[in-house]
């Protein structure tokens, strides 16, 4: 009896979370007049909504732009995060602790305060309407440094000493010895950065105006708000589904890593 109640409740929960997505998938194959109906399956299947999306916005370009930006940012955040995290944890230099406090402090400053000056900086560098304008400001993050630092602190000093005796450079130690030992944190940083960056929309809205350079979420958001979709609900949903697809596929393949990484983001406090 108790079990039945438990499963009913769990299945109801699953229904609440999954049904909107299922409804969205089928709705993208419905003619617009049908979308308001309560039944799930289309009476008349159509590709029209997808056709309208591809006709109106270069969404494949948006995908490519997002991929370029997100890949470079993820790579850069991981590498520089590790290097800096290493410097903060295993090297001794003057001002290290002060610098580390400063980087903790930057995490406490809300982005609202730096948003407009950073935009102006990007304008001055001539990086508006340029993918670099999306990449450069987020190439290194304090959060990734913090995660790497915490993880690197647990590595035994003997290992490093041995490597130094063998004549390894500091970068050599970091990437040949420490990196392979720190896979979990590398995966965590990479996934968090990737998902966060892929879904970012406020900053691209500010920096990119030229359609051919827009990221995918930006393009889809503007398609839905602006007149581009001819107020076709089906096309708006289709564009949203296309936007969701890459991350959802990655999630379904690497779900254990996703869940663990994103949950660990909550443990910093």
């Amino acid at each position: 009896m108790k079990k039945t109640l438990l499963y009913t409740s769990l299945i109801f929960g699953a229904f609440i979370f999954a049904y909107p997505f299922i409804w969205m998938i089928f709705s993208t194959f419905k003619p617009n007049a049908e979308i308001g109906n309560i039944q799930l399956l289309p009476e008349m299947w159509t590709w029209q909504n997808y056709k309208l999306v591809f006709d109106r916005i270069p969404i494949e370009k948006g995908f490519l732009n997002s991929l370029i930006v997100t890949s470079i940012v993820t790579l850069s955040v991981t590498i520089f995060g590790a290097i800096t995290g290493y410097a903060f944890s295993r090297l001794h230099w003057k001002g290290r602790d002060a610098m580390f406090s400063l980087s903790l402090f930057t995490m406490m400053i809300p982005f609202q305060i730096t948003l407009i000056p950073t935009y102006i900086l990007i304008v001055k560098f001539g990086l508006t309407d340029n993918l670099a304008g999306l990449i450069v400001p987020t190439m290194i993050t304090a959060f990734s440094i913090l995660l790497f630092r915490q993880s690197f602190l647990t590595i035994p000093q003997d290992l490093l000493d041995a490597a130094r005796l063998d004549g390894c450079s500091e970068l050599g130690i970091l990437f040949r010895i420490i990196f392979p030992l720190s896979k979990p944190v590398v995966v965590t940083v990479a996934i968090l950065t990737f998902v966060g960056n892929w879904n970012e929309v406020l900053w691209p809205l500010i920096v990119i105006r030229e359609e051919a350079l827009m990221t995918m979420p930006q393009m889809v958001a503007l398609f839905a708000v602006g007149g581009g979709s001819d107020s076709s609900v089906g096309a708006q949903l289709a564009s949203a589904l296309l936007l969701a697809l890459p991350v959802v596929i990655a999630y379904l393949i690497f779900q254990k890593h996703f869940i663990k990484s994103m949950a660990s983001s909550g443990l910093k406090s």
């Binding site: 909107p20 997505f21 879904n199 929309v201 839905a224 609900v233 994103m262």
Partner: peptide, 28 residues
């Protein structure tokens, strides 16, 4: 169950917003 409950977390806010705009529509 965990996979399903976690699904909306990874999806972009833009997707969720467009989706719910339809779900919340008064008439349809």
């Amino acid at each position: 169950f965990r996979t399903i409950y976690f699904l909306p977390v990874v999806v972009s806010g833009v997707v969720v917003t467009i989706l719910f705009q339809q779900l919340f529509s008064f008439e349809t």
